[in-house]
Design a protein around this nucleic acid. Structure first.
Lengths: 106, 106
DNA sequence: CAAACATATGAATATGTATTCAAGTATATG
DNA sequence: CATATACTTGAATACATATTCATATGTTTG
């Protein structure tokens, strides 16, 4: 009965919420846009080819989950990833994709 | 026009799919069950308090996405996480939660 | 204050998907 | 081959949520 699982049960819902937020292509693209440096809503919309309204809706969710931070500069609002763990999560998952792409044998 | 984003656009849908799979509490619990060592479907069902049918449905998705591997042992089928990157992803996200919990100032 | 720009929000809709239930497949055993 | 166990699968349903459109809020400037 080894309890190798280090994740407390109580954290599971919040964890799932965060993954769920990253599990939408539009939102993931938005996250990628503001992963390394602050970027305005309109620039995100342009880069992702999503409507400004939709980007704003998604940013609200990401901000509520503390995945991004907002900072107003004049008329614009700039968003940036809250911390580097978000980058790590994404890079780990990319590594997983590479590995599963290589290691397939069935 | 800095392209600090290292993730190729073509990988985004697959990335999102994987995160989406982890973004469901039932499925995340199932993943946690088989994160470190193989475990049978019925044991997963018992540990998670989910129906065997539901566990099986979820495992099918996880297997199709290569997040877990299946191995039959007699009448039972054991599932285990496909590689250690899945563990890393989860641990990074837990770190993010801790950090955002500490760093809040608003 | 009015006008222009940037962003946010609410309601409506369309689509996806988690869950359940019933039935099917696979494996061991007598 | 019949039975029991373990798992899988399909269809139905209930629920969530991504997207759009219209409108509102906030900000700078004249």
């Amino acid at each position: 009965m080894s309890k190798t699982n280090l994740i407390p049960e109580e954290d599971v819902p919040q964890l799932a919420d965060l993954f769920s937020l990253m599990g939408d292509t539009s939102r993931l693209r938005i996250i990628l846009c503001c992963l390394h440096e602050p970027i305005s809503v309109s620039d995100i919309a342009e880069n992702t080819a999503l409507s400004q309204s939709l980007v704003s809706h998604h940013l609200r969710l990401l901000k509520a989950a503390r995945m991004v931070r907002a900072e107003r500069r004049g008329k614009q609002v700039f968003y940036v990833a809250a911390d580097h763990h978000v980058q790590c999560v994404i890079q780990d998952m990319v590594a997983h994709i590479s590995e599963s792409a290589n290691g397939e044998d069935g």
